[in-house]
Amino acid sequence: MGVGIKVEHLNAWFGKTQALHDINIAIASNHCTAVIGPSGCGKSTFVRCLNRMHETIPDAKAAGKVEIGEMDVYNGTSAVSIRRRIGMVFQKPNPFPTMSIYDNVASGLKLNGFRDRKRTDEIVERSLKYAALWEEVKDTMHKKSGAGLSGGQQQRLCIARALAVEPQVLLMDEPCSALDPISTGKIEELIFQLKEKFTIVIVTHNMQQASRVAEFTGFFLLGKLIEFDKTEKIFTTPSDKRTEDYITGRFG
């Protein structure tokens, strides 16, 4: 089951440049929340702060309170153990090219010291089914490299890899921006089904995508969270002028 996320007074920096200013947001469990905004508005940084990937960039730092379920992300929990419970899918599909499809999905389990062969088989199958990739790869998954798949399949493989460790939250950082419309459709369909089991936060450039998959949408601008509300409200009657300008295409 997914868990909710509570963010209070989150600030983030790249060196001396502040990328996020005092973000407060409460993300509902087992729903999909979209984060939209123009390029450079801090939406990716925000998502990367949730699993502490932000701080892996040299000179980047973050401060504030982030609670994911019972975990206090910036206080008393190690970054490694947080990332084990939060899956992440990146903009560019990044399967491990030297591993087979099967090993790609099992890689998270292996890293966590999971050695049970039979259970691993089950989990890999289940994860590939979650990611709607099972039918396409079940015969070749031991032989074929993860890099031998098409772009859309690679991205679904990355989703399967993230889901294999049974995370509570799935973060998606523009997961469809490198994909064609058909693959995008498949991934969106997937998000719909995955909501039942995971809390999903998706960063997207594509406002139609946000309106299709997300119940809640947050609009970021210049490192600030301008508005956060139900998706219909954001796209029909936003309460902030800047949100309206953005979604009607007046800038960005």
């Binding site: 892996t56 990332r83 939060i86 899956g87 990146f90 560019k92």
Partner: peptide, 14 residues
């Protein structure tokens, strides 16, 4: 590529 490092880190690797 940097994405490979991020992929492993995001899985909870040391």
């Amino acid at each position: 590529p940097q994405q490979q490092r991020e992929a492993v880190l995001a899985l909870g690797a040391t």
